[in-house]
Design a protein around this nucleic acid. Structure first.
Lengths: 189, 189
DNA sequence: AAAAACATTTGCCATATGGCAAAAAACAAC
DNA sequence: GTTGTTTTTTGCCATATGGCAAATGTTTTT
């Protein structure tokens, strides 16, 4: 749980009692490769934190193709915000790409913490805002760059992810086909 | 100012006194076409709300090409969050695409309101979160679709923008060249 | 170790988009 | 209206990426 505490404290300060309270609500959970943390069509009712492993957010387009929207790796929060906050059905899947170890908070506990710990809401908002801003700034360049550039930037931005995910996921994240990505990799070496 | 009040009240409720206090800090401002609301290299110190007109967020890539990251039209907040919240230099320009009428809050006033009005912070966070989520969900499909599909989705998502912005801006938003976009439009009619 | 299942690479050709420059159209200034 | 300026369209050809199927490589199962 040290990782979670360190992560939280990067965004604000809490005393030991407050930290203990948060940790008392934290459940450890393992999610095996290819299992879902949350699913399209269901309302997301948990907030997760990845201790070990890689997850991805994906959905299916109208041609039935699977599109990877985002990768999330160690020491990051995982939550389908729109679904969680508004209690609406999610449109995406959050799937373990590798076996994952997580810390999970139920929505009930999460909201209780928000109402109990003074300053916790500010910290949470900072965390969420940063995550959203990062997401935008990581996805944006994907639109205007060519495929090779996109792949190279991906390697810079997610150095810990690149060798742990199947080519096909990566390709769908970059918006190209698996074969093209394979050719691009050949040309880079 | 009605528009601003209506917009705010969609995200939470405030009494008349609180609304008046917010409005007392609001300055009206006009920004002429092609002028900046905020600039790369400067720290953003204002929050804006567009009453009339279209703005865009853009930056320059390493080839000197101008890339449009986002369009913002009437009844939306405009703020470079990362710069505003962390007092760091912005990396993008916010530019008026048409003549714009705005309501502007200085950072000082904005923070004073946050500290004074109970519940205002919650409303602001809701607004900002929604804006960020929208941004992600609008940009994401741009990666995996072909150019024609992207243009068609743009028309659906920004019906009020499409006829008010130069083709070149739109093309750079969609990640294609102006000539390609011109050809795509021809084929659609 | 062999078989099966899965992931990646490659070949061949089709197609979409880019680059560049010229033409046409739209808009603005005088 | 004429002239000049900016924006959009078009032509020509180059190039990047896609689609599909076969080949190769890798991992898992038995």
């Amino acid at each position: 749980m040290k990782e979670l505490v360190a992560y939280i404290l990067k965004f604000g300060s809490l005393n030991q009692q407050q930290i203990d309270l948060i940790l008392s609500k934290a459940q450890e959970r393992e999610i095996k490769k290819e299992n879902y943390f949350s699913e399209a069509g269901k309302v997301s009712v948990e907030v997760g934190f990845i201790i070990d492993g890689v997850m991805r957010v994906c959905y299916y387009n109208n041609k039935g193709e699977e599109i990877t929207k985002y990768f999330i790796d160690e020491n990051n929060l995982v939550v389908d915000l729109e679904s969680f906050e508004n209690s609406i059905c999610s449109s995406a899947y959050v799937e373990a790409v590798t076996d994952c170890k997580m810390i999970v908070f139920s929505k009930k506990d999460w909201e209780e913490l928000l109402n109990t710990i003074i300053g916790w809401d500010k910290i949470v908002h900072k965390i969420i805002n940063k995550a959203l801003i990062d997401k935008v700034s990581r996805r944006s360049p994907l639109v205007s760059e060519d495929a090779t550039t996109r792949y190279l930037s991906f390697m810079e931005m997610f150095p810990n992810v690149i060798n742990r995910v199947p080519l096909s996921y990566l390709a769908s994240y970059l918006g190209i086909t698996q074969s093209s990505l394979s050719r691009i990799r050949k040309n880079i070496r």
